[in-house]
């Protein structure tokens, strides 16, 4: 065999040695790196197909000895849980991603969002404050937008105004959402306070008026008609049979029940109306916190 032939054999032999067992799938006494990478590739394949339970199942079975994989595994687990809308569990895993990982910012921003969505605003704020100034001015602006959103969720308008001062509209990933936050602020400030007891008092004076006050006009008119028609019926029976008439007593009792029910219904309608408004605003704020994260990190 000539010189070149020997070189050829040498190169082929050298090339084949490290690849032996590359796709074996289990870590033995060789380097576990390729095996873990292959597992992660498979998890990514499952995620791309939307097989999230299967992805979690594979991740749960992965216990690499080398700690440098832990960030990737925490991120992937957190991301799958986020896609499954198991937000608190997702936040727990995303927060395990270390600061020196390239996935740190994304993980912690999404963890904060998950916590905010789960109603844990104070934990979300501390996560956001812990992200730090690394990564340039865009992440810092994103951080301020998220903090402003949190302030609105807590209805802390002074805090929101302090954050909103730095909203510049210069980053396309969040320019529209900065404007939307301002609109949410105006809407929250502009809505008059509605007190449940005031609704009850109004319905005691004019049946159904409390529901109109709660913004439920149709319910208010219906309530008025029910109570008024029962009241008129009672009057009719009173007129024909007097106060001792059985029909009058039955009818007046039913009217009383309708009247009291209408007052209680109005108190509950104001509460319901307030809850609906707050829930709707929270959803809008969370939506406008979420979109910039998707724009910036996907």
């Amino acid at each position: 065999m000539n010189m070149k032939g020997n070189v050829l054999l040498f190169i082929v032999a050298v090339a084949m040695v490290p690849l032996t067992g590359f796709a074996g799938g289990h870590a033995g006494d060789r380097d576990e790196g390729p095996s873990v990478r292959e597992d992660i590739d498979f998890v990514l394949h499952l995620m791309a197909r939307g097989d999230l339970d299967e992805g979690l199942f594979v991740l749960e079975g992965m216990h690499p000895a080398d700690a440098h994989w832990s960030d990737s595994l925490s991120y992937l687990t957190g991301w799958i849980l986020y896609r499954q809308q198991r937000l608190e569990a997702s936040a727990r895993h995303l927060l395990q991603v270390n600061r020196d990982s390239p996935l740190f910012q994304k993980s912690h921003f999404f963890a904060a969002y998950n916590l905010a969505h789960s109603g844990n605003q104070s934990a979300a704020r501390s996560v956001l404050n812990g992200i730090g100034p690394e990564g340039g001015s865009m992440p810092a602006a994103l951080q301020q937008l998220q903090l402003g959103g949190l302030a609105l969720l807590e209805r802390d308008f002074d805090s929101y105004q302090r954050k909103a001062v730095v909203y510049s509209g210069q980053y396309h990933v969040m320019a529209r959402e900065e404007q939307m936050m301002a609109a949410h602020y105006d809407r929250l400030r502009g809505r008059p306070d509605r007190h449940p007891w005031a609704g009850g008092v109004l319905s005691a004076v004019v049946p159904g008026l409390g529901k109109v006050y709660a913004g439920k006009t149709a319910e208010g008119i219906a309530g008025f008609l029910y109570v008024a028609s029962m009241g008129l019926t009672s009057y009719d029976f009173y007129r024909s049979g007097g106060s001792g008439s059985v029909l009058f007593i039955v009818s007046a009792s039913i009217t009383g029940i309708f009247y009291a029910g209408n007052i209680l219904g109005s108190i509950s309608a104001v509460r319901r109306s307030n809850n609906e408004f707050n829930h709707e605003m929270d959803q809008r704020i969370l939506f406008d916190m979420h979109i910039p994260l998707r724009n910036a990190f996907n």
Binding site: A15, G21, F22
Partner: peptide, 25 residues
Amino acid sequence: MKWTSVFFLTCISLCATLSTDRAAA
């Protein structure tokens, strides 16, 4: 010419090894 062949043979060996292992897995 021969060095080109060496290069391609090496690539083929790499691919063959990988494929065989993936197929086994």
